[in-house]
Design a protein around this nucleic acid. Structure first.
Lengths: 153, 153
DNA sequence: GGATCAGTTTTGAATCGTTCACGATAAGGG
DNA sequence: CCCTTATCGTGAACGATTCAAAACTGATCC
Protein backbone atom coordinates (compact mmCIF):
# COMPACT_ATOMS: atom_id res chain seq x y z
CA UNK A 1 0.00 0.00 0.00
CA UNK A 2 3.03 2.23 0.20
CA UNK A 3 2.80 2.91 -3.50
CA UNK A 4 -0.72 4.12 -3.13
CA UNK A 5 0.31 6.21 -0.14
CA UNK A 6 3.06 7.85 -2.14
CA UNK A 7 0.63 8.51 -4.93
CA UNK A 8 -1.82 10.13 -2.56
CA UNK A 9 0.91 12.36 -1.20
CA UNK A 10 1.97 13.45 -4.66
CA UNK A 11 -1.61 14.17 -5.61
CA UNK A 12 -1.68 16.78 -2.87
CA UNK A 13 1.78 18.09 -3.81
CA UNK A 14 3.28 16.76 -0.65
CA UNK A 15 6.74 15.29 -0.80
CA UNK A 16 6.97 11.58 -0.37
CA UNK A 17 9.10 11.14 2.71
CA UNK A 18 9.83 8.21 4.91
CA UNK A 19 8.13 9.73 7.99
CA UNK A 20 4.94 10.41 6.06
CA UNK A 21 4.81 6.96 4.56
CA UNK A 22 5.52 5.45 7.95
CA UNK A 23 2.76 7.42 9.62
CA UNK A 24 0.26 6.50 6.93
CA UNK A 25 1.26 2.88 7.25
CA UNK A 26 0.97 2.95 11.02
CA UNK A 27 -2.46 4.56 10.72
CA UNK A 28 -3.54 1.59 8.63
CA UNK A 29 -2.65 -0.68 11.48
CA UNK A 30 -3.98 1.58 14.27
CA UNK A 31 -7.13 3.06 12.82
CA UNK A 32 -7.88 5.49 15.68
CA UNK A 33 -4.51 6.20 17.18
CA UNK A 34 -3.33 9.40 18.78
CA UNK A 35 0.04 10.98 18.14
CA UNK A 36 1.65 9.27 21.10
CA UNK A 37 0.43 5.82 20.10
CA UNK A 38 1.60 6.33 16.54
CA UNK A 39 4.98 7.47 17.72
CA UNK A 40 5.33 4.38 19.88
CA UNK A 41 4.18 2.10 17.08
CA UNK A 42 6.63 3.68 14.68
CA UNK A 43 9.46 3.30 17.14
CA UNK A 44 8.59 -0.37 17.51
CA UNK A 45 8.70 -0.96 13.80
CA UNK A 46 12.09 0.65 13.46
CA UNK A 47 11.05 4.06 12.22
CA UNK A 48 12.91 6.51 14.36
CA UNK A 49 10.65 9.51 14.08
CA UNK A 50 10.39 12.17 16.72
CA UNK A 51 7.07 12.75 18.41
CA UNK A 52 7.07 16.31 17.18
CA UNK A 53 7.53 15.10 13.65
CA UNK A 54 4.59 12.80 14.08
CA UNK A 55 2.52 15.79 15.10
CA UNK A 56 3.92 17.72 12.20
CA UNK A 57 3.19 14.99 9.69
CA UNK A 58 -0.29 14.41 11.05
CA UNK A 59 -0.97 18.11 10.79
CA UNK A 60 0.16 18.19 7.18
CA UNK A 61 -1.81 15.09 6.28
CA UNK A 62 -4.89 16.44 7.98
CA UNK A 63 -4.55 19.77 6.19
CA UNK A 64 -4.19 17.91 2.92
CA UNK A 65 -7.30 15.92 3.66
CA UNK A 66 -5.52 12.58 3.64
CA UNK A 67 -6.29 12.03 7.27
CA UNK A 68 -9.13 13.00 9.54
CA UNK A 69 -8.56 14.34 13.02
CA UNK A 70 -11.14 13.99 15.75
CA UNK A 71 -10.98 14.69 19.45
CA UNK A 72 -13.05 12.63 21.82
CA UNK A 73 -13.74 14.48 25.05
CA UNK A 74 -11.14 13.92 27.74
CA UNK A 75 -8.76 12.41 25.25
CA UNK A 76 -5.93 13.40 23.00
CA UNK A 77 -6.63 13.97 19.32
CA UNK A 78 -7.09 10.79 17.28
CA UNK A 79 -6.42 10.37 13.61
CA UNK A 80 -7.89 8.07 11.00
CA UNK A 81 -7.60 7.44 7.29
CA UNK A 82 -11.30 6.88 6.61
CA UNK A 83 -12.31 10.19 5.22
CA UNK A 84 -14.60 9.52 2.30
CA UNK A 85 -17.56 8.01 4.04
CA UNK A 86 -19.04 10.02 6.83
CA UNK A 87 -19.10 7.63 9.71
CA UNK A 88 -19.19 8.32 13.42
CA UNK A 89 -17.36 7.04 16.46
CA UNK A 90 -18.15 5.19 19.62
CA UNK A 91 -15.77 5.86 22.47
CA UNK A 92 -15.55 3.55 25.44
CA UNK A 93 -15.82 5.57 28.60
CA UNK A 94 -13.71 3.09 30.47
CA UNK A 95 -10.79 2.12 28.26
CA UNK A 96 -10.87 4.85 25.66
CA UNK A 97 -11.21 2.46 22.75
CA UNK A 98 -12.75 3.95 19.64
CA UNK A 99 -14.86 2.05 17.15
CA UNK A 100 -16.41 3.17 13.92
CA UNK A 101 -20.14 3.53 13.72
CA UNK A 102 -21.73 3.72 10.32
CA UNK A 103 -24.51 6.13 9.71
CA UNK A 104 -27.76 4.61 10.76
CA UNK A 105 -30.20 7.27 9.76
CA UNK A 106 -29.51 7.13 6.06
CA UNK A 107 -26.77 8.68 4.01
CA UNK A 108 -25.82 11.84 5.85
CA UNK A 109 -28.02 11.67 8.90
CA UNK A 110 -27.40 14.32 11.44
CA UNK A 111 -26.02 16.72 8.91
CA UNK A 112 -29.21 18.64 8.34
CA UNK A 113 -29.63 20.72 11.42
CA UNK A 114 -31.68 23.82 10.93
CA UNK A 115 -29.37 26.29 12.54
CA UNK A 116 -31.82 28.98 13.57
CA UNK A 117 -29.33 31.81 13.68
CA UNK A 118 -27.98 31.72 10.18
CA UNK A 119 -25.33 29.17 10.91
CA UNK A 120 -23.87 27.56 7.81
CA UNK A 121 -23.25 23.95 8.73
CA UNK A 122 -20.22 22.44 7.06
CA UNK A 123 -19.74 19.20 8.92
CA UNK A 124 -21.15 17.18 11.76
CA UNK A 125 -19.15 15.36 14.34
CA UNK A 126 -21.08 12.62 16.08
CA UNK A 127 -19.56 10.76 18.97
CA UNK A 128 -21.25 8.08 20.99
CA UNK A 129 -20.07 7.45 24.51
CA UNK A 130 -20.61 4.13 26.19
CA UNK A 131 -19.02 0.93 27.36
CA UNK A 132 -17.34 -1.39 24.92
CA UNK A 133 -18.00 -5.10 24.93
CA UNK A 134 -14.67 -5.97 26.50
CA UNK A 135 -15.06 -3.54 29.38
CA UNK A 136 -18.65 -4.54 29.95
CA UNK A 137 -17.57 -8.17 30.23
CA UNK A 138 -14.60 -7.40 32.42
CA UNK A 139 -16.42 -4.96 34.69
CA UNK A 140 -19.00 -7.54 35.67
CA UNK A 141 -16.64 -9.05 38.18
CA UNK A 142 -13.94 -6.45 38.45
CA UNK A 143 -14.06 -2.96 39.84
CA UNK A 144 -13.45 -0.06 37.52
CA UNK A 145 -10.30 -0.73 35.57
CA UNK A 146 -8.39 1.17 32.95
CA UNK A 147 -6.74 -0.16 29.89
CA UNK A 148 -6.35 2.79 27.55
CA UNK A 149 -5.84 1.41 24.09
CA UNK A 150 -3.73 4.20 22.62
CA UNK A 151 -1.22 4.07 25.46
CA UNK A 152 -0.63 0.41 24.90
CA UNK A 153 -0.96 -0.14 21.18
CA UNK B 1 -32.03 32.41 40.77
CA UNK B 2 -29.41 32.14 43.45
CA UNK B 3 -31.95 30.51 45.75
CA UNK B 4 -32.63 27.84 43.21
CA UNK B 5 -28.91 27.40 42.67
CA UNK B 6 -28.37 26.89 46.38
CA UNK B 7 -31.20 24.41 46.43
CA UNK B 8 -29.70 22.45 43.55
CA UNK B 9 -26.38 22.32 45.31
CA UNK B 10 -27.93 21.04 48.53
CA UNK B 11 -29.87 18.42 46.63
CA UNK B 12 -26.55 16.95 45.54
CA UNK B 13 -25.05 17.30 49.03
CA UNK B 14 -22.69 19.98 47.85
CA UNK B 15 -21.98 22.86 50.17
CA UNK B 16 -23.41 26.17 49.14
CA UNK B 17 -20.41 28.38 48.70
CA UNK B 18 -19.93 31.76 47.15
CA UNK B 19 -17.64 30.47 44.39
CA UNK B 20 -20.15 27.82 43.35
CA UNK B 21 -23.04 30.24 43.31
CA UNK B 22 -20.94 32.71 41.40
CA UNK B 23 -19.95 30.15 38.78
CA UNK B 24 -23.53 28.99 38.34
CA UNK B 25 -24.65 32.58 38.00
CA UNK B 26 -21.95 33.34 35.48
CA UNK B 27 -22.91 30.26 33.50
CA UNK B 28 -26.42 31.64 33.23
CA UNK B 29 -25.03 34.70 31.58
CA UNK B 30 -22.44 32.90 29.45
CA UNK B 31 -24.17 29.74 28.33
CA UNK B 32 -21.17 28.08 26.65
CA UNK B 33 -18.20 29.55 28.41
CA UNK B 34 -14.90 27.88 29.10
CA UNK B 35 -13.06 28.05 32.39
CA UNK B 36 -11.01 31.04 31.34
CA UNK B 37 -14.02 33.04 30.20
CA UNK B 38 -15.87 32.27 33.39
CA UNK B 39 -12.91 33.29 35.47
CA UNK B 40 -12.70 36.58 33.64
CA UNK B 41 -16.43 37.19 33.94
CA UNK B 42 -16.32 36.46 37.63
CA UNK B 43 -13.42 38.81 38.13
CA UNK B 44 -15.35 41.54 36.36
CA UNK B 45 -18.37 41.13 38.58
CA UNK B 46 -16.31 41.37 41.72
CA UNK B 47 -15.98 37.69 42.56
CA UNK B 48 -12.32 37.14 43.20
CA UNK B 49 -12.06 33.45 42.43
CA UNK B 50 -8.88 31.79 41.27
CA UNK B 51 -8.83 30.11 37.90
CA UNK B 52 -7.96 26.83 39.55
CA UNK B 53 -10.99 27.14 41.76
CA UNK B 54 -13.14 27.74 38.73
CA UNK B 55 -11.82 24.49 37.31
CA UNK B 56 -12.39 22.85 40.64
CA UNK B 57 -15.94 24.10 40.94
CA UNK B 58 -16.77 23.20 37.37
CA UNK B 59 -15.43 19.73 37.94
CA UNK B 60 -17.57 19.29 41.03
CA UNK B 61 -20.65 20.65 39.33
CA UNK B 62 -20.10 18.44 36.32
CA UNK B 63 -19.62 15.39 38.52
CA UNK B 64 -22.82 16.24 40.34
CA UNK B 65 -24.66 16.58 37.06
CA UNK B 66 -25.53 20.23 37.57
CA UNK B 67 -23.45 21.24 34.63
CA UNK B 68 -22.54 19.63 31.34
CA UNK B 69 -19.06 19.68 29.98
CA UNK B 70 -18.35 19.43 26.29
CA UNK B 71 -15.18 19.90 24.30
CA UNK B 72 -15.38 21.21 20.78
CA UNK B 73 -12.37 20.17 18.73
CA UNK B 74 -9.48 22.59 18.87
CA UNK B 75 -11.01 24.40 21.81
CA UNK B 76 -10.94 24.39 25.55
CA UNK B 77 -13.69 22.61 27.44
CA UNK B 78 -16.98 24.48 27.57
CA UNK B 79 -19.64 24.20 30.22
CA UNK B 80 -23.37 24.71 30.15
CA UNK B 81 -26.33 24.41 32.49
CA UNK B 82 -28.76 22.89 30.00
CA UNK B 83 -28.59 19.27 30.93
CA UNK B 84 -32.14 17.94 30.83
CA UNK B 85 -32.92 18.21 27.15
CA UNK B 86 -30.51 16.54 24.83
CA UNK B 87 -29.56 19.27 22.43
CA UNK B 88 -26.51 19.62 20.26
CA UNK B 89 -24.07 22.36 19.46
CA UNK B 90 -22.97 24.35 16.48
CA UNK B 91 -19.45 25.70 16.69
CA UNK B 92 -18.28 28.51 14.47
CA UNK B 93 -15.04 27.53 12.81
CA UNK B 94 -13.94 31.10 12.64
CA UNK B 95 -14.76 32.75 15.95
CA UNK B 96 -15.39 29.76 18.16
CA UNK B 97 -18.90 30.83 19.09
CA UNK B 98 -21.16 28.02 20.22
CA UNK B 99 -24.90 27.93 19.70
CA UNK B 100 -27.43 25.39 20.79
CA UNK B 101 -29.08 23.21 18.18
CA UNK B 102 -32.23 21.41 19.15
CA UNK B 103 -32.74 17.88 17.99
CA UNK B 104 -34.16 17.89 14.51
CA UNK B 105 -34.72 14.22 13.93
CA UNK B 106 -37.24 13.71 16.69
CA UNK B 107 -36.77 13.22 20.38
CA UNK B 108 -33.41 11.54 20.72
CA UNK B 109 -32.21 11.42 17.16
CA UNK B 110 -28.77 10.10 16.72
CA UNK B 111 -28.87 8.14 19.94
CA UNK B 112 -29.79 4.83 18.43
CA UNK B 113 -26.64 3.65 16.80
CA UNK B 114 -26.42 -0.04 16.30
CA UNK B 115 -22.97 -0.57 17.69
CA UNK B 116 -22.00 -3.77 16.00
CA UNK B 117 -19.42 -4.85 18.51
CA UNK B 118 -21.54 -4.98 21.62
CA UNK B 119 -21.03 -1.36 22.50
CA UNK B 120 -23.50 -0.07 25.07
CA UNK B 121 -24.27 3.47 24.04
CA UNK B 122 -24.93 5.81 26.92
CA UNK B 123 -24.90 9.21 25.31
CA UNK B 124 -24.37 10.91 22.00
CA UNK B 125 -22.40 14.03 21.47
CA UNK B 126 -23.27 15.82 18.28
CA UNK B 127 -21.34 18.85 17.18
CA UNK B 128 -21.90 20.79 14.01
CA UNK B 129 -19.07 22.82 12.60
CA UNK B 130 -19.68 25.76 10.34
CA UNK B 131 -19.68 29.50 10.02
CA UNK B 132 -21.91 31.62 12.21
CA UNK B 133 -24.02 34.41 10.79
CA UNK B 134 -21.78 37.16 12.13
CA UNK B 135 -18.62 35.69 10.68
CA UNK B 136 -20.29 34.94 7.37
CA UNK B 137 -21.36 38.56 7.12
CA UNK B 138 -18.02 39.94 8.24
CA UNK B 139 -15.92 37.61 6.11
CA UNK B 140 -17.58 38.78 2.93
CA UNK B 141 -15.38 41.82 2.80
CA UNK B 142 -12.66 41.05 5.31
CA UNK B 143 -9.94 38.45 5.19
CA UNK B 144 -9.97 35.68 7.74
CA UNK B 145 -10.34 37.25 11.15
CA UNK B 146 -10.53 35.93 14.65
CA UNK B 147 -12.74 37.09 17.45
CA UNK B 148 -12.90 34.20 19.88
CA UNK B 149 -15.96 34.75 21.98
CA UNK B 150 -14.78 33.11 25.19
CA UNK B 151 -11.61 35.13 25.35
CA UNK B 152 -13.56 38.36 25.19
CA UNK B 153 -16.79 37.72 27.01
C1' DG C 1 24.41 11.37 -12.21
C1' DG C 2 25.04 15.50 -9.51
C1' DA C 3 23.97 20.28 -7.87
C1' DT C 4 20.30 23.23 -6.18
C1' DC C 5 16.37 24.93 -3.67
C1' DA C 6 12.49 24.59 -1.06
C1' DG C 7 9.83 21.59 1.57
C1' DT C 8 10.66 18.55 5.79
C1' DT C 9 12.52 16.85 9.82
C1' DT C 10 14.75 17.51 14.00
C1' DT C 11 15.86 19.30 18.42
C1' DG C 12 14.71 21.99 22.18
C1' DA C 13 11.97 25.14 24.27
C1' DA C 14 7.53 27.33 24.95
C1' DT C 15 2.58 27.48 25.30
C1' DC C 16 -2.08 26.25 26.67
C1' DG C 17 -5.47 24.09 29.42
C1' DT C 18 -5.89 21.33 33.17
C1' DT C 19 -4.71 18.74 37.32
C1' DC C 20 -2.26 17.87 41.66
C1' DA C 21 -0.80 18.86 46.54
C1' DC C 22 -1.30 21.00 50.67
C1' DG C 23 -2.07 24.64 53.94
C1' DA C 24 -5.79 28.00 54.89
C1' DT C 25 -10.70 28.86 55.17
C1' DA C 26 -15.42 28.52 55.99
C1' DA C 27 -20.02 25.77 55.62
C1' DG C 28 -23.17 23.62 58.45
C1' DG C 29 -24.42 20.07 61.96
C1' DG C 30 -24.41 19.64 66.93
C1' DC D 1 -20.63 29.09 69.20
C1' DC D 2 -17.49 25.14 68.23
C1' DC D 3 -15.84 21.39 65.55
C1' DT D 4 -15.37 18.62 61.64
C1' DT D 5 -14.65 18.38 57.06
C1' DA D 6 -15.60 19.97 52.50
C1' DT D 7 -13.89 23.49 49.82
C1' DC D 8 -10.78 27.28 48.30
C1' DG D 9 -6.39 29.34 47.25
C1' DT D 10 -1.59 29.21 46.10
C1' DG D 11 1.99 27.28 43.58
C1' DA D 12 3.89 23.79 41.10
C1' DA D 13 3.41 20.00 37.88
C1' DC D 14 1.63 17.74 33.95
C1' DG D 15 0.32 16.16 29.10
C1' DA D 16 -0.66 17.43 24.58
C1' DT D 17 0.46 20.38 21.21
C1' DT D 18 2.84 24.17 18.93
C1' DC D 19 6.68 27.20 17.84
C1' DA D 20 11.53 28.43 16.13
C1' DA D 21 15.75 27.74 14.00
C1' DA D 22 19.14 24.78 12.12
C1' DA D 23 20.16 20.46 9.59
C1' DC D 24 18.57 17.55 6.14
C1' DT D 25 16.74 15.53 1.88
C1' DG D 26 13.28 14.88 -1.90
C1' DA D 27 12.35 16.54 -6.43
C1' DT D 28 13.77 19.17 -10.21
C1' DC D 29 16.99 21.01 -13.39
C1' DC D 30 21.25 20.80 -15.74
Amino acid sequence: MTDRDAEQLRERSLRVTQPRLAVLDALDRLPHADAHALHAALADSGSDISLQSVHNVLGDLADAGLVRRFEPARSAARYERRIDDNHHHAVCERCGKVEDVDCVVGAAPCLHADAPTGFTIQAAEVTFVGICADCAAGAERLGGQRDEQPATA
